[in-house]
Amino acid sequence: MTAQRPKIRLRGLSKAFGEKKVLDGVDLDIRAGHGMVILGGSGSGKSVTIKCILGLITPDAGSIEVDGQDVLAMSRREREALADRIGMLFQNGALFDSLPVWENVCFKLLAQKRITRAKARDKAAEVLAQVGLAASVGDLSPAELSGGMQKRVGLARAIAAEPDIIFFDEPTTGLDPIMGAVIDGLIVDVVKRLGATAVSITHDMASARRIGDDAAMLHKGRIVWTGPAATLGETGNAMVDQFARGDREGPIQMELRR
């Protein structure tokens, strides 16, 4: 029996900014239709990894395959076609201040001309309902929303075009634990409904267990462990377990100046 081809495959992904090597040969397989959570401390290269997959940063070396196709060898048109199938929830929402919420939510559909402006409001109301927001929120400006509402609008924007790969950049950062759990619940629901592949980066262990099927630990630019997200905290890998428990002592040493 042959193993199922991964949705996303990273091999030897490397990236340095000046002297600082952020990714140092990342190898990772992400299964189609599953949730992968990439864990790691601040500065471990989590965001750079997903920015490389999204095409926002060009890696120095390595390969990125999506559905077996080499992303780095794609023409601009092929990359644009790939971007059409991808959704992204940014850490701070990254909502467009100059546009009302409904236009933010339907931005991709409008950009792809899959919907007219006249119908976009109704569509936005429909998607906002999926993330638990009232249709009236659509007329507000992003600046008028609380942090939790901004995350939900960001989630609505990420799923409005029904992508088959969705990236979540620290979806619960800055939220209280209850709102974090609400957002995680919404993420699980929408990913399941769309049948999408979800890639999340986080250092919130509770969130990682809730939204992930698989997990990978990134440390100093390398993947040091992969396994089921449910086992986080009792993986047997000293590095992962220390990170999951938040222990000061262990193989991961913070570089603090004294």
Binding site: M88, F90, N92, A94, L95, F107, A111, R157, A161
Partner: peptide, 13 residues
């Protein structure tokens, strides 16, 4: 600085 330009790219723009 608030990732809105990156967001445009991910929104096919």
């Amino acid at each position: 600085v608030t990732d809105q330009i990156d967001a445009l790219t991910t929104l096919s723009t």
